[in-house]
Design a protein around this nucleic acid. Structure first.
Length: 556
RNA sequence: GCGGAUAUGGUGAAGUGGUUAUCACCUGAGGUUUCCAACCUCAUAUCGUGGGUUCGACUCCCGCUAUCCGCACCA
């Protein structure tokens, strides 16, 4: 592992800015905190990392890609819990000016202060007047709501509905559950992936790409039947990885061992940890700077059964870049409750269950006119009685005594054959912060060496994510070398998925250095011999080796 | 959001209350050069932004914006 010194960090950010990889957005207007551009080189890098991620998960075979809007109606994020969760009530200490969360200050006075409205919090704060955790003084200002989601309006004027820019992509997978379920012919398990922008109006974005207000996310929602024990093959992962379990206990285990020992509580969570690791290594993360950390029980959302973060070591220390959470049935259930729509899967019983029904129900034609508005509740009450009930009978419905006569009811006797049941699938969710991953792979692939007494830097990106595949360089721009090189360049650019750069300015060594600095894996050099025999030099970034190949035999 | 520091060409830095604001690298043009940042000539900034003090401000003062470091918040 390289040492991540502050000096190296500033050299790296300098190169990334100078070469157009990552740069502060809207700089000519003074910039904007938490917003970054991927420049002419970075744009393709982001795209390739993104596509590699999608292809990686699609290769599982039962995953589908979807794409949902970033503008999201209020109701969706209210149902998901984000409206509540992303609103914090802050208050300032009158003595030292320190901002604190109002609900944290009154923690001892209420069982769930997070759920309280602003007025109630203010009241509790005034009456108890807790000391400031920073200076110890007692005296608090007004409570202010702080929402971390970007507000917007869908539609104009008074007909506009309140909405938010989504704080995560996941909700789209839940709200589209029915169509994904149908797509997979109603057979679990299956998953849906989505990549795209997410927005969080952070109070103070810091540390470059680590904490952004608009960021690239990539999430998989994998739906499973909680009653079927998942079977996964862990044999591919033979290298032990660092695991920090709930409670802080650190161990080295293979993923398979950790599942077997119960350190990882759910096999599917473990399986996706393995897939996550494969992806991170594929795009260029150094395995020595990768570890998994389990959320503490009190840190996890109440519905989560197990949650592991993939943390990557870089210039900013260990940073969480992926979260893999077993979310139970929470999300689908929340949307089901809010909408009344069925977000369930059908489970067929191995053997149909026969239930003998023997009881009573109402005779609609008679009971309807007799009980009018109360008929529905009477029916409910009658169907709750067992077969031994006898009529007439007096029921108390909502404080009203109702006389149910023999003619109002009829016997209900049949065998109910249940072949299966509807259930809410459980969800395992790997969620990736693409920007954080891109930052770390740049950090890990950036290498400073010495070449002939001079500083020399490489970006040793894997060729699968390198933003430029090849540079075409005429040794000199005369005698037709420039023209031949330009032709080769255009031919390469016309091939799907290939990006080539034509560079004829400066000495050949300088141009190799420029290519190395943005991680171009190959350079093609056109020289005098090329004009005679149609061969060129193919030069490798990683070892500097050169081979002579025919133009028609180029490996692109 | 609070406290501290900073803001000068593409990058990293120097510098001064007063005529054409330095240096290195980078980038571009031309020359030279037969494969790893060579060399020569030339070119590129109204010193973050808005205001104030002053005969005169890049330099002093204030607001704003941004960056960095703590705290708080957050994944």
């Amino acid at each position: 592992m390289d040492d991540f010194s502050a000096e190296r960090l500033s050299r790296l950010t300098g190169i990334l800015k100078r070469r157009g990889v990552i740069l502060p957005a809207f700089e000519i207007h003074g910039g904007a905190a938490g917003l970054y551009d991927f420049g002419p080189v970075g744009g393709r890098l982001r795209n390739r990392v993104n596509q590699t991620w999608i292809d990686h998960w699609l290769s599982l075979g039962n995953i589908v890609e979807i794409s949902c809007p970033t503008v999201t109606p209020y109701a969706v994020l209210e149902a998901s819990g984000h409206v509540g969760e992303f609103s914090d009530f802050l208050t300032e200490c009158k003595a030292c000016g320190e901002a604190s969360r109002a609900d944290h200050l009154v923690e001892d006075l209420h069982s769930n202060p997070d759920s309280l409205p602003k007025e109630k919090l203010e009241e509790l704060l005034q009456s108890s007047n807790p000391p400031c955790p920073s200076c110890g003084e007692c005296g608090w200002g007004a409570v202010e709501a702080q929402n971390l989601m970007f507000n917007t309006k869908i539609g104009t004027g008074s007909s506009g509905r309140q909405g938010f820019l989504r704080p995560e992509t996941a909700q789209g997978m839940f709200t589209s559950f029915s169509s994904i379920y149908r797509h997979f012919r109603e057979r679990l398990p299956f998953g849906a992936v989505q990549t795209g922008k997410g927005y969080r109006n952070e109070i103070s974005p810091r540390q470059g790409m680590i904490r952004l207000r608009e960021f690239n996310m990539a999430e998989l929602e994998y739906f499973i039947d909680p009653e079927i024990e998942p079977i996964h093959d862990f044999s591919a992962w033979t290298q032990p990885v660092t695991l920090i379990a709930d409670g802080g206990k650190e161990s080295m285990n293979t993923i398979g061992e950790a599942v077997e020992k119960g350190i990882i509580r759910h096999p599917t969570v473990g399986y996706f940890m393995g897939w996550t690791m494969d992806f991170l290594l594929k795009v260029g993360i150094n395995p020595d700077g990768l570890r998994f950390r389990q959320h503490e029980s009190d840190e996890m959302a109440h519905y989560a059964q197990d949650c592991w973060d993939a943390e990557i070591l870089g210039s900013y220390g260990w940073v969480e870049c992926v979260g893999i959470a077993h979310r139970g049935c929470y999300d689908l259930e929340s949307h089901e409750k809010a909408t009344g729509q069925r977000l369930r899967a059908w489970r067929t019983f191995q053997e149909p269950k026969s239930v003998e029904i023997d009881g009573w129900t109402i005779d609609g034609a008679k009971a309807g006119p007799a009980f009018r508005a109360l008929a529905g509740k009477v029916k409910e009450a009658i169907e709750g009685l067992d077969s031994t009930a006898s009529f007439p009978l007096t029921l108390n419905i909502d404080g009203t005594d109702v006389e149910v006569l023999d003619e109002h009811v009829k016997r209900r006797q049949f065998t109910d054959n249940q072949t299966g049941e509807w259930f809410i699938p459980h969800v395992v969710e790997p969620a990736f912060g693409i920007d954080r991953i891109i930052w770390h792979l740049l950090d890990h692939c950036y290498e400073e060496t010495d070449k002939g007494g001079e500083n020399y830097s490489y970006l040793r990106l894997p060729s699968s994510v390198a933003p430029v595949d090849v540079c075409v360089l005429p040794l000199y721009e005369k005698d037709g070398m420039g023209e031949l090189a330009a032709t080769i360049h255009r031919d390469l650019c016309s091939k799907p998925g290939i990006v080539s750069i034509f560079d004829a300015s400066g000495s050949i060594g300088r141009r190799y250095a420029r290519a190395d600095e943005i991680g171009v894996p190959w350079c093609i050099t056109v020289d005098h011999d090329s004009l005679k025999d149609g061969t060129v030099t193919l030069r490798s970034r990683d070892d500097g080796s050169q081979t002579r190949v025919g133009i028609s035999d180029l490996p692109f």
